[in-house]
Simulated assay, not measured.
Amino acid sequence: MCETTAGPGDVTASLPKPAPGEAVDPIRLEPVDEVEIVTLVDNVFDALLTGDERTLRPGRGAGMVAAPQFEGGRTPAGMIAEHGFSALVRVRRGDRVTALLFDTGLSPGAMVTNAGRLGIALDDLHGVVLSHGHFDHAGGLAGLAGARGVRSLPMVVHPEVWTRRRIAVPGSPADELPTLSKRALNGEGFEVVERRVPSLLVDGSVLITGEVDRTTGFERGMPPPHQAWTGTGWVHDPTVIDDQALVVHVRGRGLVVLTGCGHAGAVNIVRHARRLTGVERLHALVGGLHLGGPAFEPVIAPTVAALTELAPDLVVPGHCTGWRAQHALAAALPSAWVPGGSGTTHRLTAGAA
């Protein structure tokens, strides 16, 4: 179990280190003894879901709040669910544990509130990783800054995370999305580190993929209404090029891949992680897979087929995966698919030597 936390002196070890070679070259990813992924924010919360030896649920009693209409004046509030994603990742090697925050959810308060209801302190974080710049993954940065105060905290991002974007559906007014401010984040104590290529964190045991190679023929990205500002005009932005994933190698099990939205495509991301690390086995895939809605439903079948061939031990699709893809994955991978949700913890431990 992840019970020992790393000390303040370990922050330096959590800073990104340039991974050797280009993004397509092999990287030595140090195996870990355990990785624990706590979903702090997801689109759903179901207090009736049951867990097992690797999946822990918060249950109906989570988050007691004041409620004067009840005898005793309190009631369980459960976890906040919203259209966003955030996960706390704890990595253990031996007796040393390092905690990283991967994305922060949609609203300023949901992530911090849910962490509090789970009894998780966010003041011992060693770094933040943003999967990409969309606001439903970065909105909780304000709440995190408020909870921690202005203290230095490394944050790993892709250089295009600051891109202005909008949704311009023909016949409707264009809707510009909130854009991250580097100046504001620096002022709040985040030590922003920008990298396009892979980064190794936590003494080489956590990989941030950087830009993902797009190798499949079916994962084509966002539809034409998703646009980016070039400085002179708006253009179709299919790739969301700042999309990146977090990868850990659990000793004796294989790769654990954590995605925010998976804009690069779930299969592209897994292929990229395998190619970078030289580790063929996919142990777990957790996070948003962006297969919801009419523009992405044609991608479901080939994605499910490719993931079925990879035969992961655990698949926890969340956030923007969509209900049709959830059903398809559950049918194709019944022993691996597990429903996620705010407050759920997935604990993955090393295999026998």
Rank of each mutant, 00 (worst) to 15 (best):
G278M: 07
A305E: 12
P312C: 09
T303R: 01
R324L: 09
W323I: 09
G288Y: 07
L285N: 02
P317I: 00
H319W: 14
P334I: 07
R281V: 02
T303P: 06
A325N: 03
S335R: 08
R324H: 05
P298N: 03
L282D: 04
S335C: 03
E280F: 01
T303S: 07
A311N: 08
V286Y: 08
V315L: 10
R324K: 13
Q326W: 13
G322P: 08
S335T: 09
T277L: 10
A295F: 15
T277E: 12
F296G: 06
V315W: 00
L333N: 01
L329N: 02
L310P: 04
P298Y: 10
T277A: 10
V315T: 12
Q326T: 08
G318T: 01
A331D: 04
D313E: 10
R281P: 08
G278F: 12
I300S: 04
T321E: 02
V304D: 15
A331H: 03
L282C: 11
E297P: 09
L289Q: 13
G292A: 15
A325V: 04
P294H: 12
I300K: 01
D313R: 05
T277C: 12
L314F: 12
V286L: 11
P312V: 00
T303Q: 09
C320P: 01
I300M: 13
A328W: 05
E297Y: 10
T321S: 03
T308G: 04
L291A: 07
A284G: 14
H327W: 05
A330N: 02
A311S: 14
G322V: 02
A332E: 06
A284Y: 11
P298E: 07
A301V: 15
C320L: 14
P334R: 06
A284E: 13
A284R: 10
P298V: 03
F296R: 09
